[in-house]
Design a binder for these strands. Structure first.
Lengths: 162, 162
DNA sequence: GTAGCGTGCTTGACATGTCAAACAAACTGC
DNA sequence: GCAGTTTGTTTGACATGTCAAGCACGCTAC
């Protein structure tokens, strides 16, 4: 009953997986070498930096980058120890906590972004032509539309045996 | 001096990252729910199963799936404890070790593959049309050609400050 | 044959991610 | 108000990945 993959489908699937693995590895390596940041660090810094006042509720941040709150809490603890961000209390909710970019965090991100964009261009964007970029954008949109419709962002994921 | 990303490029880059994150999450989740396997488990089982005699030298396996030997050694230890694979000594090299699929490992993989293909179809391949599949295959090939040419597989990666 | 180096794998310490439990503040109904 | 639930976050135990030693065998030159 199983519909196996055709040759073309298999080629695309394996190619995608391999691209994903190697591209990630390369970008992560570049980011670490250039700026001393991990992907996780970079994602957090980027999100916080684009928030109004360069500060965010932990829960909002977690949702926007699709992390578990637990993961984020651990990560923020480590980043705070390194002086990249600072924890604070939420003004409007006694339970709430906020993350804010420190000056050092902001400066680090500024420097990192330049290198990171260059790295993304070098290994990814500049390897593709305009048509490729358009095609991949379209493909990602399709896959994302399916995934975000099937599995709503906030509520708990569907289970096999409830 | 930095060439920032155009809107189209940025859209593609963010779309790709998000697709990667969500697609992975979904497939990993399905795999675990359907078969009790992690991605790592599945990759190892697949590779070993396609080797002649369903058994492989650890080093060869590590190279073929691009893992560190250390990572593989830990993983094999855990999988052996669960009875999915068995360690053995290499017949031709006293230092060498082999991994072989156990009957349980083979059976588990057989069952898992059916569900996994269905999952890949459902969330990825079947969301795309034929043209998309062809386009993505072409794009992955381009990126991979660049990455594997710039960073040769076996020798140590290039450094910033040697 | 044996010293010295290279190779293949394992191990241990540590970083990071996940899951479930713990907590404290905020709602809700009475 | 105040018991019970919900919500936002933290914490701890544990799984997994990385890096740097460690170890044992194989190879080469003498």
């Amino acid at each position: 009953m199983t519909r196996w993959l055709t040759d073309a489908e298999m080629h695309t699937w394996l190619g995608y997986r391999r691209m994903r693995a190697l591209l990630d590895l390369q970008l992560t390596r570049d980011l670490g070498a250039d700026s001393g940041l991990s992907d996780a660090d970079y994602d957090v810094l980027t999100s916080v930096s684009s928030a109004p006042g360069r500060q965010l509720r932990l829960g909002e941040l977690a949702a926007s980058i699709r992390w578990s709150t637990s993961r984020l809490s651990h990560q923020v603890t480590r980043m705070a120890q390194r002086g990249l961000v600072a924890r604070g209390d939420s003004p409007d909710d006694g339970r709430g906590a906020t993350v804010a970019l420190t000056d050092a965090g902001w400066a680090t991100l500024q420097a990192a972004a330049v290198h990171h964009v260059a790295s993304v261009r070098r290994h990814f964007i500049d390897v593709l032509d305009e048509q490729d970029v358009a095609d991949l954008g379209r493909i990602a949109d399709k896959v994302l539309a399916h995934l975000t419709e099937a599995t709503p962002p906030t509520p708990p994921r569907r289970r096999r045996s409830p």
